[in-house]
Computed example of a mutant assay.
Amino acid sequence: MSKQLDASAQGVYLITVTPFTDSGALDLASTDRMVDFCLEKGVTGLTVLGIMGEATKLTMEESRTYVKQVLARVNGKIPVVVGASAPGFAPMKELTDSVMDLGASGVMVAPPSTLRTDDQIVSYFQMVGETLGPQVPWCLQDHPVSTGVQMTANVILRILKNSPTCVMLKHEDWPGLAKLTAYRAASDKGEVKRFSILCGNGGGLFLPEELTRGADGAMTGFAYPEMMVDVVAAHARGDRERAHDLFDAYLPLAKYEQQAGVGLAVRKFLFQERGVIASDFVRKPGPKLSAQDVADIRFLVKRQEKRLRELG
């Protein structure tokens, strides 16, 4: 049983990929290797069934099988958050109850693309809290690029005031530094409870700046999770220069992995190259890498390795 999610959460919650075999079936052996790899690299938590986890391409049964495998392998060592966004409240509740029974630490919910006004957004998340129930801590995902829903800082603060079980914000708006400053100012003044803020902007493309603005860490994916772990650790001990130097070494590859449409294929290819997963298969609709893409990636990896050696 993993520790329940709470407002003190910090560090790096890695968004996992979902490993498949070359024929597109769930690959549970690679899932175990991936969990071991993440633990070895020092992540603080895992987030499964996110957008980059191809959640919408899994059946309900596959989703449960995958979550069960991850939780069994994690074996309570670190918290596991499960993406529970759904078109309706009944499937959201069904998946949530199922994964919480299996030992998940909490769930993450994003707004559906149908929401238009501030009041609609606030009302929707009031219903999310009621649907999940008083025992389920949850994370609010603010990712307008994927949802099409714009939530201002004020709207998010209203949601947090209304929802005692919302303990974390996955902050993915871009640009979002001013929003981060507003959240921390509001909680510092006691206008809203202190809540955990983990950043997910493009594989952590603004991570050092977001940490400086008061983020508690990262919740995103990247084929080199040790980058986020080391950057967050350097920042926590007050070595801002080291945090930026490390970040800069990985930035070209992180940027390449953030290309719209092809990013997941890049991440899975790199995980396969690193021996973490057996296949880089992406379910349809999904991108395939060209020979030129692979050449680009290998060139960037070599440069990254050279820079890391120089930094020691």
Rank of each mutant, 00 (worst) to 15 (best):
M1R: 13
S2V: 14
Q4T: 09
A7K: 10
A9I: 03
V12F: 11
V12K: 09
L14V: 06
T18M: 02
A25K: 13
D36T: 11
L39S: 12
G45R: 09
M52C: 06
S63L: 00
Y66T: 00
Q69S: 15
A72L: 12
N75D: 15
G83W: 03
A84T: 00
K93P: 00
M100F: 09
A104V: 05
M108P: 01
T114M: 11
T114A: 11
V122E: 05
Y124S: 09
G129P: 06
G129Q: 14
E130T: 12
T131A: 13
Q135F: 06
V136G: 07
P137L: 07
W138T: 05
Q141T: 01
D142Q: 07
V149F: 04
M151G: 01
N154F: 02
L157D: 12
R158Q: 14
I159H: 06
P164H: 06
V167S: 13
V167R: 13
H171F: 07
H171Y: 08
E172A: 06
D173N: 08
T181W: 03
Y183K: 01
A185R: 15
N201Y: 03
F206T: 13
P208V: 01
E210N: 01
L211I: 07
D216A: 08
M219N: 13
Y224V: 03
M227Y: 01
M227W: 00
V229N: 10
H235W: 11
H235Y: 11
R240A: 13
H244E: 14
H244S: 05
D248L: 08
A249P: 05
Y250Q: 07
Y250M: 05
Y256N: 09
L264S: 04
V266I: 15
V276D: 10
A278L: 05
S279Y: 10
D280L: 02
G286K: 12
D293C: 04
R298S: 10
V301N: 07
K302S: 14
K306L: 09
R307A: 14
R309A: 13
L311G: 14
L311E: 13
